[in-house]
Design a binder for these strands. Structure first.
Length: 601
RNA sequence: UGGACCAUGGUGUAAUGGUAACACUACAGGUUUUGGUUCUGUCAUUAUGGGUUCGAGUCCCGUUGGUCCAACCA
């Protein structure tokens, strides 16, 4: 009997290298079997597709292995940060479908960081340096030559202590003093050459007000917050690899500080005793997202918005999550894309086509099919009575099928009106077709999707320009879609809209903003060779056709009333999305991505 | 010219010392009331030279190429 088939082979799910580490750590009982990650954006700008990759990792791995992921705003630099961004960040993460455990801020830990810094001074691990930034830079050495010690390196502890207090008093000018960790000015790791712990900013913080005038640096914040918060796996991108050694050093100092009675104001879960190696946060790095024909850096994105190259951060051409959302990508399509590119330690340049393919794959199942004519030309059905019209039922989504593979019609249709005068796509008619063209041309039968089979009998062209102005057809009344008479082989099916029953629409078609694969490198090189910076170095690589607005388009009336961000497929053209600016009176649609097109092959 | 990291089809990933696999792209073809979807097929001396091993994409050494590190940014 064939009932006892070979056991269904469990497809071994392959974990990425970080998931594997997490799995192994959990199995080994590290951190008491706890799993905690964090997503730590600096609230100084909008999240982009690169962040989506980090989000999918930080939240995803916690979800997958039963841990939690906190959202931590890395707000240690009040010069650049703003509460406006906090809300945008939260909205984008939620839109992607993730939930954080706790919402915390690096500034929640400022007091503990300060106390820890004081302990570092008292134990001879830190000192206040009063040199200028130029002097300090000169002493730092280079990657190939060792640095030299600051003359303040061995100043008395009491002196550093009182100076550190002054750094936070508001009476010290920024740049006059910094607190430095006393490590090794000759280290081959530049981050060990007495890194800065605190700098004077004399600035109010949007959360802590005027309490602080000296603020901790990234390296004296991130790992420390991880530790205090109980993060077990601190996952970040590859450019932080060289910070890891310092991260580890500070973690051991912190443990020592607490073991010697250091008190924290926040509730720290990490046990004071116990083997440090089994009870600490650890940093792991993966490759960040690079996309060809895309520029990701915040600095350059800011220039594009300031110079008016794009219309704001949520312009559908922007790689920001708000831009991509407005472009019409679903969160699922983004996650599908992220999943397809994986996590490794190889510095990859991903093909934007992978992202588009993910969008098509997801939107194919999600998007409602409608009829839209972007570049219209009129068709007159000469044997269809004037003044007559009829309602035809069309399928919203043919991908919706039952167990037998038949399209589900219930709740999956809407009506479209047919009449004597129609709009069709100008490129769907050719007066003189070439061999491979099989849409509409004189003497040929063509199927009007969901309607009738028509026969093209002629056309009228402008005498001067030769432009086709009207096309004439007769229809076969017995060929109505869904009836017996429609079951005839007709090569060529096109979409259409009844002139009287459709509405004008604005259709915005997009292409990549850049004409070169790697705009970042191209711009950098152009800056170097031509001595220009900013927008002037970007212009040569900007795609002049990145936005193509068509205001002469038509759509079904039904579609014009759909709410913003509805996922649509303009049948035979591509995926489109209702723009937030859209109104029933003035519908606006954004092209997400075109349908795969094998015309002319 | 210091240190750290990396190298598998066009692109990205998998193969955990034992048959180089998958997705996307591209191309060719079948099905189709979307030139869509779907289905089938085609596309690799694992950068390179040695070594260890019965056996190497995987381990070791060298070479070449690439990335990151010298902000009072994160």
């Amino acid at each position: 009997m064939s009932t006892s088939e070979a056991p269904v082979e469990e497809k071994k799910e392959s974990l990425n290298f970080i998931e594997q580490i997490v799995k192994d750590d959990l199995a080994a009982g590290k951190n008491g079997g706890r799993l905690q990650t964090r997503f730590p954006p600096e609230p100084n700008g909008y999240l982009h597709i690169g962040h989506a990759k980090a989000i999918a990792m930080d939240f995803g791995v916690a979800e997958k292995f039963g841990g939690v992921c906190n959202l931590r705003m890395d707000d240690t630099n009040p010069q650049k940060e703003d509460t406006e961004y906090v809300e945008a960040i939260k909205r984008d993460i939620e839109w992607l479908g993730f939930k954080w455990g706790k919402l915390v801020y690096a500034s929640d830990y400022f007091q503990d960081l300060w106390d820890f810094a004081v302990w570092c001074i008292k134990t001879g691990k830190a000192y206040v340096d009063e040199q200028t930034s130029e002097e300090i830079a000169a002493q730092k050495g280079t990657p190939t030559t060792p640095g030299t010690n600051s003359p303040f390196r061995d100043r008395p502890i009491e002196e550093s202590l009182s100076l550190f207090e002054q750094m936070n008093s508001g009476n010290i000018e920024p740049g006059k003093m910094v607190l430095r960790a006393k490590i090794d000015m000759a280290s081959s790791n530049m981050h060990f050459r007495d890194p800065f712990m605190y700098r004077v900013l004399n600035m109010d913080h949007w959360r802590t007000g005027n309490k602080w005038n000296a603020y901790p640096m990234y390296d004296f914040t991130h790992g420390q917050c991880d530790y205090l918060e109980g993060v077990t796996h601190s996952i970040c991108t590859l450019e932080f690899v060289s910070h890891r050694e310092l991260y580890d050093l500070f973690v051991t100092w912190m443990k020592q500080w607490r073991a010697e009675g250091g008190k924290t104001t926040v509730d720290c879960e990490v046990p004071i005793d116990g083997d440090i190696e089994d009870n600490r946060s650890r940093q792991f790095e993966f490759n960040k997202l690079n996309l060809n024909y895309t520029l990701m850096s915040k600095r350059n994105l800011l220039i594009l918005t300031k110079e008016g190259v794009v219309n704001g951060w949520d312009d559908p051409r922007m790689p920001t999550l708000c831009g991509i959302r407005r472009r019409g990508y679903s969160p699922e399509s983004i996650l599908r894309f992220i999943d397809s590119i994986g996590y490794t330690t190889f510095d990859a340049l991903n093909d934007i086509k992978l992202m588009e393919a993910a969008a098509r794959a997801d939107l194919n199942d999600r998007a409602t099919r409608i009829s839209a004519v972007i570049d219209p030309v009129k068709v007159i059905i000469t044997n269809y009575p004037e003044g007559q019209s009829e309602e035809l039922e069309v399928i919203n989504n043919p991908q919706l099928v039952d167990a037998e593979g038949n399209v589900i019609t219930e709740g999956n249709t809407h009506t479209i009106t047919f009449s004597r005068e129609l709009w069709i796509e100008r490129e769907d008619f050719k007066a003189e077709p070439d061999k491979k063209f099989f849409r509409m041309y004189p003497g040929k039968e063509t199927r009007l999707k969901s309607a009738y089979i028509v026969n093209c009998t002629g056309f009228k062209a402008n005498e001067e320009t030769g432009e086709v102005e009207e096309i004439y057809c007769t229809y076969d009344p017995d060929s109505k879609a869904g009836t017996e008479g429609a079951n005839r082989k007709v090569k060529g099916t096109i979409h259409w809209l009844s002139c009287e029953h459709c509405v004008p629409a604005e259709v915005r078609n997009y292409e990549c903003l850049w004409t070169c694969e790697n705009p970042r490198d191209a711009i950098k090189q152009y800056e170097k060779e031509n001595g220009v910076r900013g927008i002037d170095a970007m212009r040569p690589f900007l795609n002049p056709n990145s936005l193509n607005v068509n205001r002469n388009a038509y759509v079904e009336k039904w579609a014009a009333e759909l709410p913003a961000l509805t996922y649509l497929q303009f049948q035979r053209i591509g995926y489109y999305n209702v723009d937030p600016d859209s109104t029933p009176a003035h519908p606006v649609f954004n092209s997400t991505v075109g349908l795969k097109d094998s015309k002319g092959k």
